[in-house]
């Protein structure tokens, strides 16, 4: 793309993009660390995730402020406007992703001293891997404005949802099998829900990439495959 006649405008857009890239890297790391802390039940790592979340909040705040100032100063049009609106949206999603990672880290700390059965973690590991991959892919798609990759992320959101539903059933079964699992599994359920929502934010970002590139807003026609709220499990008497 050719440059703006006002070169300071180009610099502002680049600064904003850099801020978002930094947020993306940090959010990805936070999620990665939170997942690792969970699967290894590592409370030291969990604490660092909680501490580092503040940095993400700060970056989000700065990105938003830069975006607002640029809109006020330059009255951006067309692709520039979409670029800035996209940055605001993505920074919001990334900030939320950070919060979710922090929530998971808090659960890890709460799990300390509870009856733990590491085999129960396997299902959570799988959904965590998929969600993290979704986040990585969508950030790549954003960095390269790759519409195809963004679409792939959006299309795979159903997998995350479906995995969450089946994990929900699995954990419920463990809880019924052995009541000593209940505390641990309940925490894991919350973690899984947080992980599933990280996947949703990845999808939001994918839709934003689509908007930035094409100018079209996508209607929310994704099929929600998280059926956990309607799942009925027959309790044995």
């Amino acid at each position: 793309m050719s440059e703006h006649i006002v070169s300071r405008f180009d610099e502002e857009l680049k600064d904003l993009a850099r801020r978002i890239a930094e947020m993306g890297g940090l959010a990805e790391r936070q999620v990665d660390h939170a997942m690792t802390a969970l699967t290894r039940l590592d409370t030291t790592l969990a604490r660092s995730v909680i501490d580092d979340d503040r940095r993400l909040d700060l970056l989000q705040h700065e990105a938003e402020e830069m975006a607002i100032l640029t809109i006020a100063r330059r009255q951006p049009m067309a692709m520039d406007l979409r670029e800035i609106v996209g940055a605001i949206r993505i920074s919001n999603d990334l900030e939320r992703v950070g919060d979710l990672a922090k929530n998971i880290a808090k659960r890890v700390i709460a799990l300390e001293g509870q009856f733990q059965s590491p085999k129960l973690l396997r299902g959570v590991e799988h959904i965590a891997e998929l969600s993290l991959a979704q986040l990585k892919n969508v950030l790549d798609a954003y960095a390269t404005r790759d519409l195809e990759q963004a679409t792939e992320v959006r299309d795979r959101d159903g997998e995350v949802d479906a995995m969450y539903t089946s994990l929900f059933r699995e954990l419920l079964t463990y809880m019924m099998e052995d009541p000593r699992n209940i505390g641990f599994c309940a925490h894991l359920l919350f973690c899984a829900k947080n992980i599933e929502r990280i996947g949703d934010h990845a999808t939001n970002i994918a839709e934003t990439v689509h908007y930035v590139v094409t100018g079209e807003l996508q209607l929310d026609e994704r099929v929600k495959q998280d059926a956990s709220s309607t799942t009925t499990v027959a309790f044995e008497g």
Binding site: M1, S2, E3, H4, I5, V6, F9, R74, P76, M77, A78, M79, D80, L81, R82, T214, G215, E216
Partner: peptide, 16 residues
């Protein structure tokens, strides 16, 4: 928001 022609895009976004 989504001009089709590059010349339009360049003009309204203040590019060379």
């Amino acid at each position: 928001t989504t001009p089709r022609d590059k010349r339009t895009q360049d003009y309204i976004t203040g590019r060379f």
